[in-house]
Design a binder for these strands. Structure first.
Lengths: 124, 124
DNA sequence: CTCTCGTAGATGCACCATACACATAGCGCC
DNA sequence: GGCGCTATGTGTATGGTGCATCTACGAGAG
């Protein structure tokens, strides 16, 4: 036994998945980075990198997909709350469509994989 | 209406998707790079980069997931035919499992997205 | 009072997957 | 010989991602 599949080489979420994920969360209501950071785990991003999230939000701000404003807090540092723009909503729909294509492709993968395994090991 | 989502910023397949895709195809039978290149489109990779595919195959060869041997051809250049090893089969199962997780995450995304759109626009 | 912890936002940088271009070679055909 | 298809590669730039680090505010512990 030389090497069983290690935990290395893990499959990740789709490329550029962070944007549609953030847009979806913001579509459900305005929020700020730190809160979005926690909600992202429910969408498949395990322990997302804060720096990445904040950068993505700022980038979408500059692209006009979201707009932000500072909200002072009495219980801690100020928050930059983000809200979805109409253009951002358009992007949300478009990106959700792209994700649906990816999902369909993964479905065909799994159907093909299961067909392989079921006819490979009919015994047992 | 200021800006509709451009074709840019397309969502891609999951990170490291190429390996499980190739392993699945090789699980169905031995093949060579050029043929795999064409079959990959059926698994969601649209016009995959040949260089990437060949590199990935060589890498998996060095990792022991596949083994290769030259097969002369009378109708063209020689082919390097790849066959799945037992270790490669183990990896196939493991990676298919990881892909299933990704698929589940995307499913939750879409359910949440549709819930948003249906309650956002109940009219029609 | 200071130190630490949790909240909140942000930058710098290195790595690595991916994308794009390009090179090589055999074979069939006009 | 030149062209196109098959077939396998290499070189390199780009850009998304991961990791480390920094600042700052408020609250509670010691």
């Amino acid at each position: 036994m030389s090497g069983e599949p290690a935990a290395e080489f893990q499959i990740g979420m789709p490329r550029n998945y962070l944007r549609p994920a953030l847009l979806l969360l913001l579509g459900e209501g305005t929020s700020h980075g730190y809160e979005l950071l926690e909600q992202l785990t429910a969408l498949g991003l395990d322990r997302p990198d804060p720096g990445r999230v904040y950068r993505s939000l700022r980038a979408m701000d500059e692209d006009g997909l979201v707009r932000s404003e500072w909200t002072p807090s009495t219980t801690g540092p100020a928050r930059r709350t983000y809200a979805l723009t109409s253009e951002g909503r358009d992007w949300l729909h478009a990106l959700a469509g792209s994700l649906a294509e990816v999902s369909r492709a993964l479905g065909s993968y799994q159907r093909r994989y299961q067909r392989l395994t079921t006819q490979d090991e009919p015994v047992r």
